[in-house]
Design a protein around this nucleic acid. Structure first.
Lengths: 198, 198
DNA sequence: CGGCTACTATGACAGCGGTCATACCCGGCT
DNA sequence: AGCCGGGTATGACCGCTGTCATAGTAGCCG
C-alpha cells in the first residue's frame, strides 16, 4: 500500500496499525511506533495529545476505513460479481499475504477488541465503529447483487465474523486452510441468497 | 463452573484463563493471577518454573479441553441432535453469558493467538493445539449426525471460525446480534450437510 | 528584524512487569 | 530427634512503558 508521501502523522497511524496487527495493542510501544514510522518521538505528544489511546483509536479507525474501501475495489475486480466471489476476494487478500509474508499479522480491529473491550476506554467504541465502517459497504454490495436488504445486512455480518475467525485460526495453525474452508463452505450459501429472478 | 475444591495449581491456571479472557495476555500480570486465585505469590515460580509463558500455555490448553468437553454436553442436552442445534447451543453459551454478566470476556484462545502468534514463543502452538482439541470432538459429533467425514471436518472448522468471529464482533458492539445472526444464517447450511437417508 | 506558531528533541520520572534469590514453615520419613 | 523436600513468603532488581516538562529549531508573517 502507499507509504511514501504521507505526512508524519499519517505514517504514525499507519505504523501503529501495522504493529498492533502483529503484536497486539499492549505489546506495541509508543517509541516503537515512532521508530517504525521514521518519525521523531516528540511528534507523538504533538499529534496525539490523547496519548496511546488516541493513537490506537485512530489506527483502528484507519483499518476500518481501509477494509471498507477494499470492498469497492474487490467488487470492481470481479467481472461477474457474485456474493461468493466477493467473499473469496476478501479471503484471498489474507491467503495471499500469508503465503507471501508468513502468518505474522492479523486484523488490528480484532486485536483492539480482544485487549480493550473489557477496559472501559474508548477503544471499544472505535472497534465497533470500524466494524460498522467495514460492514456497511459490504451489505450495500450484496444488495447491489440482488440480495434482499434485510438479508444483506445479516450476511455481511456473517461474512465478517467468519473471515475474522478464520484469520484467527489460520494464524494459530500457520495454515490458510481455515480461510479456504470458509470460502468453500460459505460460498454456496451466499450465492443462494440472491433473489431469484422471475 | 466448579471452582472450589481444586488445588492451588489448578486454581491459578483457571484464574489465568479467566483474566486472559477479559484483559488479554499482556495485560494480565502474574501477581494478579495469584491474587485472583487466592494463591500465594511464591507458588507461581514453584508450579510454573517456565514463567508466564508456561502459565499462559496451560491456561490456553485448559480452555481448549473445556471447549472440547462442552461439545459432548451440548450433544447430550439435545433431544433431537442436529448440526444446527449443536451450533445454536454453542452460541447460546455466549449469548447467555453476555446477557447475564455483560460483554467483559471473550475467548482466551483468541486472545493468546492475537497477542502471541507473531512472537516466536510456544504459545502459538498451544493455541493451535487448543483449536484442535476443540474441533476434533465437534467434527466427530457432526459425523455422528450423518455428516460425511470429510465434510464434517470442514464444517467443524467453519463453525468455530464463525463463532470466534461472532464473539469478537459481539464484544466490540456490546450486542449479541452477531452471535444470533451466525446461528440463524448458518443453521440451514449445517443441517443440509447431513447425508440424505435413502 | 521580532515574534509567533508548528514541530522537534531530550531527559526525567514514576509505575509496573516478570524474574531471581533467599529465607521460612511444616509435615513426613527413618 | 534429625533431616528433607514440597510449598510459602518476601524483597530486590532491572528493564520497559506512557507521560510530563522543558528546551530547542524552522519557517512564515508582519
Amino acid at each position: 500500500m502507499g507509504e511514501a508521501r504521507w505526512g508524519p502523522r499519517e505514517r504514525m497511524v499507519f505504523s501503529a496499525a501495522q504493529l498492533i496487527r502483529r503484536d497486539g495493542v499492549a505489546a506495541t510501544g509508543m517509541r516503537e511506533v515512532a521508530a517504525h514510522a521514521g518519525a521523531p518521538r516528540g511528534s507523538l505528544q504533538h499529534y496525539f495529545p490523547g496519548g496511546k489511546e488516541q493513537l490506537v483509536n485512530e489506527a483502528v479507525g484507519w483499518a476500518g476505513r481501509y477494509a471498507g474501501k477494499r470492498i469497492a475495489r474487490f467488487l470492481a475486480g470481479l467481472e461477474r460479481p457474485t456474493p461468493s466471489g466477493l467473499f473469496a476476494a476478501m479471503a484471498a487478500q489474507w491467503t495471499d499475504e500469508y503465503a507471501a509474508d508468513g502468518f505474522t499479522a492479523g486484523c488490528p480491529v480484532a486485536a483492539a477488541t480482544v485487549e480493550c473491550a473489557a477496559a472501559g476506554g474508548s477503544t471499544r467504541e472505535a472497534a465497533a465503529a470500524a466494524f460498522a465502517t467495514w460492514r456497511s459497504p459490504l451489505a450495500e454490495a450484496l444488495a447491489g447483487m440482488g440480495v434482499p436488504a434485510a438479508r444483506a445486512a445479516s450476511l455481511a455480518t456473517l461474512m465478517i465474523s467468519t473471515l475474522e475467525g478464520a484469520i484467527l485460526m489460520a494464524r494459530a495453525e500457520r495454515d490458510t486452510a481455515p480461510l479456504r474452508t470458509a470460502v468453500r463452505e460459505l460460498g454456496p450459501l451466499l450465492d443462494a441468497a440472491v433473489a431469484p429472478a422471475p
